[in-house]
Amino acid sequence: MNSLSQNRDQQVAEDSAAIPSNTVQFHLTSDPKLLKVVRLVVGHLCDLAGFPEAQRHRATLAVDEACANIIRHAYEGATDRPVIITARLIDNGIEVVLRDFGKKADVEKIKSRELDDIRPGGLGVHLMQSAMDEVVFDNTLPEGNQLTLIKYLPQFRSDIHEEVIP
């Protein structure tokens, strides 16, 4: 076992020992076919938090896009690498932390394309930022990256109103 693997195992053990209440933590491999499982868990957590349907869709989309970015960029398409997702109910919404152990992202390059530039791709970051209230990227860890996504319930925000789409 190399030192990176040992560090990862140690990190996993430390994380597992410190799971707070109202928290779901799960480990998965970087396989796109598992994304639906992630969406189901996050969607259910949003239901527990009390999000309206449209906001639940948005939060689920953001976490799905974050996972897809890990698969595509941090792991460059490899389907057997570890991803740890820690999702928890907070007082006024939900927080989802995604941890990978892949290629470090260049924070300067993490940006959405201009939306007027109509072309396939490049929307994931925009969708995450639009769907969530806080998106915090950390690539200062010894290995890999960590992304924290927070979404507040509508009643805790003054700048949104729920849209009903027929």
Binding site: R58, L61, L123
Partner: peptide, 11 residues
């Protein structure tokens, strides 16, 4: 609804 959301968010 869910599909419309993603189209609206991406304009």
């Amino acid at each position: 609804l869910a599909v419309r959301e993603v189209f609206e968010l991406s304009r």
